[in-house]
Amino acid sequence: MELYNKLSDVDLMTLLKSGDDYAFTEIYNRYWSVLYLHARRMLHNSDKARDIVQEVFTNFWNKAKELELSTSLNAYLYRSVRNSVLNMIRKEKQENHYLAELGNFYDKGDFCTDVQVNFNELKRLIDNEVEMLPKKMRQVFELSRNENLNHAKISEMLNISDLTVKKQINKALHILRRKLNIPLSLLFIYLNTRS
Rank of each mutant, 00 (worst) to 15 (best):
S72G: 06
E26T: 01
L43S: 09
G109Y: 04
Y28V: 01
L187T: 02
N159S: 15
E131A: 09
N118M: 14
G109V: 10
Y22L: 13
P183M: 04
S195H: 05
L143S: 12
L158G: 14
L143I: 04
Y98C: 03
A49D: 02
S144R: 14
R82G: 08
N74F: 05
D9A: 13
L176S: 06
S18H: 06
R30I: 06
F57W: 01
L15C: 05
A100G: 02
F141A: 07
V140N: 07
L158A: 14
N83V: 11
V165N: 05
R40L: 10
N104Y: 13
V115W: 03
L176A: 06
V117D: 12
Y76D: 10
K17I: 01
V53W: 00
L67K: 09
D51E: 08
I52F: 05
L186F: 00
F105R: 09
L191T: 03
Q54R: 07
R138K: 15
Q168E: 13
M1H: 09
K6V: 03
N74A: 05
N181I: 01
E142F: 06
I189F: 11
K135G: 07
E156M: 15
V130P: 02
D21C: 07
T58P: 00
L3M: 14
E142A: 10
K167N: 15
M137Y: 04
A39E: 05
E101F: 06
S195F: 11
Y76H: 13
Q94V: 05
L143T: 06
S72L: 09
F111W: 10
